[in-house]
Design a protein around this nucleic acid. Structure first.
Length: 361
DNA sequence: AAGCCGGGGGG
DNA sequence: CCCCCAGGCTT
């Protein structure tokens, strides 16, 4: 499939998609706005996240932090609390960092070109293209999961997605298609098509505005596109969690600035080693992490949780400190908090699965 | 190129 | 259960 052949189809594809988008576009809050800050926030929120899942977060976030300067002035804890439960928390930390960068380097206004936008933390080629085309009308393409599916079907591309040659080709095609006028609407129309019509399974080809252009459908291969590489199995780990109580307060720690769930608060604990009992693991982890000797009480809960590349079972036990004063080697901060204060801290979802059990009545 | 990074909804 | 979502960053 050569680019110049695509260019011949381009006018029809543009016209059909733009007209369909004009008539059928969902009424999403960030589409009512021209504010680049709103567009930026929506794009970060929606990374690897369905629109329906991100929507309530968008509304709440803008009530709390209505402007870019307000975001820059907020604490990271406040931003993480607003992000709590959504996952991929690095997005929130980068958003916050980027806001401060924009205040310092761009006088508080987002840069208008995709090239410069991409210098902000958390803004890659996709997000830069989305902001630049939607908020600033720059003729740049976007390629997200939806667009990959639409393009591999429309042009019957059998190259496996994820490989650099394939990605390069998809970006080149997307670039060839995006028009000089209304680039943002066109980019959104491709994504909207992928989200609502050209779905991963059982695409609704009968309703598709580019039905007649679709090379994969002509061969009945639409559900075989895109071609993906096989996934790897996810390992499972047993975790022990110590709910340490003292004077009706519980010990929580803030996770370090790197890696999984960075910056979030949690109950201390760690991985069960081979052949180890829960009790032995709790004693060892509390000694290693907190420098305290604990007595292990009853089990509070055993909760399962699935991450992208990891499955865990949290075995949660009541513990009391027998000797020593807790000082964490792995957390940036420790606090003793009453259950009524839990809401002030951002906890990972896995912790929320047992948190309510600690609240009085 | 491959791994890491959350959580949820749909089939 | 498996899939994948308006991806980015690190190694």
């Amino acid at each position: 499939m050569e680019i110049h052949r695509i260019m011949q189809q381009a006018p029809h594809i543009r016209k059909s998609l733009l007209q369909w988008f004009q008539e059928e576009a969902r009424d999403l809050p960030w589409r009512k706005s021209q504010d680049p800050y709103h567009i930026w926030l929506s794009e970060i929120l929606l990374q690897q996240t369905r629109v329906d899942q991100g929507l309530p977060y968008y509304e709440r976030f803008l009530v709390a932090l209505p402007t870019l300067p307000a975001l820059a002035a907020a604490s990271e804890d406040e931003v993480l609390k607003l992000w709590e439960g959504l996952g991929y928390y690095t997005r929130a930390r980068n958003l916050h960092k980027a806001a401060r960068q924009v205040m310092e380097q761009h006088h508080g206004s987002l840069p208008e070109s995709a090239e410069i936008l991409q210098l902000l933390p958390g803004v890659g080629r996709y997000t830069a293209g989305a902001i630049a085309s939607i908020a600033f009308n720059e003729r740049v393409p976007v390629v997200d999961g939806n667009v990959k599916r639409v393009l591999t079907r429309l042009f019957n591309i059998a190259m496996p997605i994820g490989e650099s040659a394939t990605e390069k080709k998809l970006w080149a095609i997307a670039d060839a298609l995006v028009p000089e006028s209304a680039p943002g609407d066109f980019n959104q129309s491709m994504m909207e098509l992928g989200a609502r019509i050209c779905t991963p399974r059982k695409p609704d080809c009968d309703s598709c505005p580019v039905f007649s252009e679709c090379a994969a459908r002509k061969k009945g291969l639409q559900e075989q596109r895109p071609v993906k590489k096989p996934r790897k199995a996810v390992p499972h780990k047993e975790i022990v969690v110590a709910v340490i109580e003292r004077d009706r307060q519980y010990l929580i720690g803030r996770r370090g600035p790197d890696g999984m769930l960075a910056g979030l608060w949690e109950f201390p604990g760690g991985k069960l080693e081979a052949g180890e009992t829960h009790q032995a693991a709790l004693a060892r982890e509390c000694a290693e992490e907190l420098g305290v000797e604990v007595k292990v009480g009853g089990m509070i809960a055993s909760v399962k949780h699935v991450y992208t590349h990891l499955k865990v079972t949290l075995n949660v036990y009541r513990c009391t400190i027998v000797s020593g004063e807790a000082r964490s080697n792995v957390h940036t901060e420790l606090k003793w908090v009453h259950p009524e204060e839990f809401d002030a801290y951002a906890f990972p979802k896995a912790n929320h699965k047992f948190l309510d059990l600690l609240r009085p009545e």
